[in-house]
C-alpha cells in the first residue's frame, strides 16, 4: 500500500448527540483503501449514525471526520465519490427500475448505465415494473446496482442484507465482492450476520454502547486475541500482563478472552485462537469503553 495515500476514512473523536441521546461518542477510526470493512455492533450501538456521518447526511456534534481527504459535504464533487445505501432501501416505490436508472443518469456526471442494466438482466429483475411490487431482495439488489453505477470510491452500506433470504444474501455479497475486485473501491458494510461478513470482509469496526471497541485488520485483531481456559483462580497475574476483554467464570473454571501483550506463559491455562464471532461477542459483552480500568491499573503498577 502506498504510504503517501491518505486513508479514505479517518475520524478522530467523532461524536453525534441528539437532544438527549448520545448516538456516537469519541469514535476514532481509520479504514485503509481497498478494504471491505465490517461494521458490527448491537442494535443502537451507533452503526447507522457513523455511516450517516461519513456520508454527510448527518453532521457531527464533535470531533473530526475526513472522507476521501475532505470533510463530508453536500457538494456534488464529494457526493460523486460516495455510494450510500440506507438500511430501509429507500427507493421511489411507484417508480420502475428504469425510472431510477433515468434519475441516476440525470443526476450523476459519472454513470455506468450499462452495468446496472446488465446486472438487473442477470438477476432477472424487470426494468418496467414498479419498485413497490418487487421483492425485498430484488429491491436491495436494484439499490446496490444503482449505488455501484455511480462508480463510487467509497461504498457505505447499512445492513443491506438484513431483509434478504440466504440465497439473495449470497448473490448480493457476490455482487459486492465482484465490484471491489475491480479495484479503487473501499467498502464499509454493517450487519448482524457475522458469518456473512467473515466471508468477504478483511477489516473490522466494532461498536458497542456508542463507542468504538475495535478497529483494524481482521487477521491482525484475531492474532492479537486469545481465549484462555483454566482454573477459576485469581486472574490478577493475567490481567497485569494482558488486557482482559471478557471473563466467564464458573465454580471450577474460567474462560478468559484477552488481548495479548506478548506470549501467555502460565501453564495452568490452555490457550486457543479466537474466531471472529467469539471476538465480537466478547467485546459486545463489554458495557463501557475499551477496558480503561485495566489500562489504568497497568499504569499504576509501573
Amino acid at each position: 500500500m502506498a504510504s503517501s495515500n491518505v486513508d479514505p476514512i479517518q475520524t478522530r473523536g467523532l461524536s453525534k448527540r441528539y437532544r438527549r441521546v448520545t448516538a456516537l461518542s469519541d469514535a476514532s477510526i481509520a479504514v485503509p483503501e481497498g478494504r471491505i470493512s465490517a461494521l458490527i455492533g448491537p442494535n443502537g450501538a451507533g452503526k447507522t449514525t457513523l455511516l450517516r456521518l461519513l456520508a454527510g447526511l448527518a453532521r457531527p456534534t464533535g470531533g473530526e471526520v475526513a472522507v476521501l481527504g475532505s470533510h463530508p459535504s453536500q457538494d456534488s464533487a464529494f457526493l460523486a465519490d460516495i455510494g450510500f445505501l440506507a438500511q430501509e432501501i429507500p427507493l421511489y416505490r411507484r417508480f420502475t427500475a428504469k425510472d431510477h436508472i433515468g434519475i441516476g443518469a440525470h443526476l450523476n456526471a459519472r454513470w455506468d448505465e450499462a452495468s446496472v442494466v446488465q446486472r438487473l438482466a442477470t438477476l432477472g429483475i424487470p426494468l418496467g415494473q414498479r419498485v413497490g411490487t418487487l421483492s425485498g431482495g430484488q429491491r436491495a439488489q436494484l439499490a446496490l446496482a444503482l449505488t455501484l453505477a455511480k462508480r463510487p470510491r467509497l461504498l457505505l452500506l447499512d445492513e443491506p442484507v438484513a431483509a434478504l433470504d440466504p440465497l439473495a444474501r449470497r448473490q448480493f455479497l457476490a455482487h459486492l465482492s465482484e465490484a471491489v475486485a475491480g479495484g479503487g473501491l473501499t467498502v464499509v458494510l454493517s450487519s448482524h450476520l457475522i458469518a456473512d461478513l467473515e466471508r468477504i470482509c478483511d477489516h473490522l469496526i466494532l461498536l458497542a454502547a456508542s463507542r468504538v471497541q475495535l478497529c483494524g485488520d481482521i487477521d491482525a485483531l484475531l492474532a492479537e486475541h486469545q481465549v484462555l481456559v483454566g482454573p477459576a483462580k485469581d486472574t490478577t497475574a493475567i490481567e497485569r500482563d494482558h488486557t482482559l476483554v471478557q471473563a466467564v467464570r464458573t465454580a471450577r473454571q474460567a474462560t478468559l478472552l484477552i488481548r495479548r501483550n506478548g506470549p501467555v506463559i502460565d501453564p495452568a491455562y490452555e490457550a486457543s485462537d479466537v474466531g471472529l464471532e467469539e471476538l465480537v461477542l466478547g467485546y459486545m459483552g463489554q458495557p463501557a469503553g475499551p477496558t480503561p480500568k485495566h489500562l489504568s491499573a497497568i499504569g499504576e503498577d509501573k
Partner: peptide, 8 residues
C-alpha cells in the same frame, strides 16, 4: 437519502 446522495 437516495435523492440527496446522487451526484448533485
Amino acid at each position: 437519502q437516495f435523492a440527496w446522495m446522487q451526484g448533485i
